[in-house]
Computed example of a mutant assay.
Amino acid sequence: MTRTKITLALALMLGSLTAHANTVRYESPAMRGEITTTVTYSDAADLLKTSVRNLPTPKVQLANVEVIDTVLTPANTAGTKLLDTTLMDEFIADVSPNARHYPPNFPNATTEYLATQNAKHLSDWIEPFANAPDASFDVLMRAAKLNGIARNLNAGTDYSVRAANHVQKALKMQPNDVEANLLFGIMLSEGGGFEEGKKYLDKAAAQGSLEAEQSLAQSDLLTDKKDSALNRLKKLQAANPDNAQIAEQVKIVENGGYYIWRIANNNINLKHYR
């Protein structure tokens, strides 16, 4: 089961095609530029083969054709309902370096706007599934991440409430999950709940989460514990000498900065998801 992504040379052409096995029933968000219905033509002319007076023959070029496995995620704990989260997961992975932490950091206003609209669209789409009494852990985590990103992009207080609610429900299901503890710790500490957030970040850090350690340093900075933050980051740097991000975070603190996640990351290629 695969999803084919095609970049077309002509603007406003279709951005992606999908091919799925007919035997699997699932739901997926409607993505911009994606074929969702069968297109048939009865008497239409093929302009690539038939010339029309005063109309030049169109030239279409395909590039960057990529076939990726479709990700089907159980929507409920019984696994009787599936969601196609392929492009949703791709969006989360692509935008997280820029908006997983606050404040967000984008190369330009256009990219930030596009990320905001996509985050809102996908958050709203998955919300009914995450709100269901039997929502699966995987759906809750995706909803929490999407709403957390929307929150950081100042999309509105509703997204902040959703993000907290979903990750707390996920933690009730799996209290020791590293990612869930990390995510909730980030939300709390970067929202001003430093002491409460530290409990979850400590739990994730104890299980080896490097990002949790970095987030603890960020929390120290925001509570006027610069020396503690710098010491933590330098220990991480010594243990991870090839990690360019940590090295940059050390420089930020040494230069008097307070937001260690404010590091330029222009390697982002957002697509129009709505």
Rank of each mutant, 00 (worst) to 15 (best):
K49V: 11
S209Q: 11
Q207V: 10
D227G: 10
R32A: 15
A135Q: 07
R142F: 03
Y26V: 12
N267F: 07
N165M: 09
G79S: 03
K81N: 09
N266I: 00
K59F: 08
N108I: 04
N76V: 05
M1G: 14
I6Q: 14
L72Y: 06
A45S: 09
M173G: 00
M13I: 01
F194T: 15
R25M: 14
L270Y: 08
F106N: 05
R142M: 08
S160L: 11
A205F: 10
V71D: 08
L146C: 00
Y102D: 11
S96E: 13
A206R: 08
L236K: 08
L233C: 11
K234C: 10
A30G: 14
A78K: 13
E66N: 11
V39Y: 11
R262V: 14
T80W: 00
V95S: 07
I186K: 00
N165W: 07
A99C: 13
D224V: 09
N64M: 12
E196Y: 02
L201E: 08
L221P: 02
E127N: 03
I149C: 02
Q117M: 15
T110L: 14
L233Y: 05
K235P: 04
N267T: 07
L83Q: 03
Q207N: 13
L140Q: 03
L210Q: 08
V161F: 06
L216E: 07
V250P: 08
A163E: 00
N181F: 03
K198Q: 15
W261L: 01
V250N: 02
S123R: 00
S215G: 03
N269R: 12
V52N: 06
A21R: 10
L114V: 15
Y200I: 11
D224R: 13
T85H: 07
L233F: 02
V178R: 13
E211I: 09
L188K: 02
A44V: 11
N152M: 12
L55Q: 14
W261T: 00
T18E: 15
L153K: 02
Q218D: 12
G79F: 07
T23E: 06
K198H: 12
D69W: 05
T110P: 04
K59D: 10
H20D: 15
I246N: 02
N118P: 12
P58L: 02
P107N: 10
Q214P: 06
D124H: 06
S96R: 06
D69S: 04
L114Y: 13
L188I: 00
K169D: 01
P175Y: 04
N255F: 04
L122G: 06
A229L: 09
E27F: 14
S209D: 14
I246E: 01
G191Y: 02
A247P: 07
R3T: 12
D220F: 09
N152V: 07
S215L: 01
Q237S: 10
K226L: 07
G191S: 12
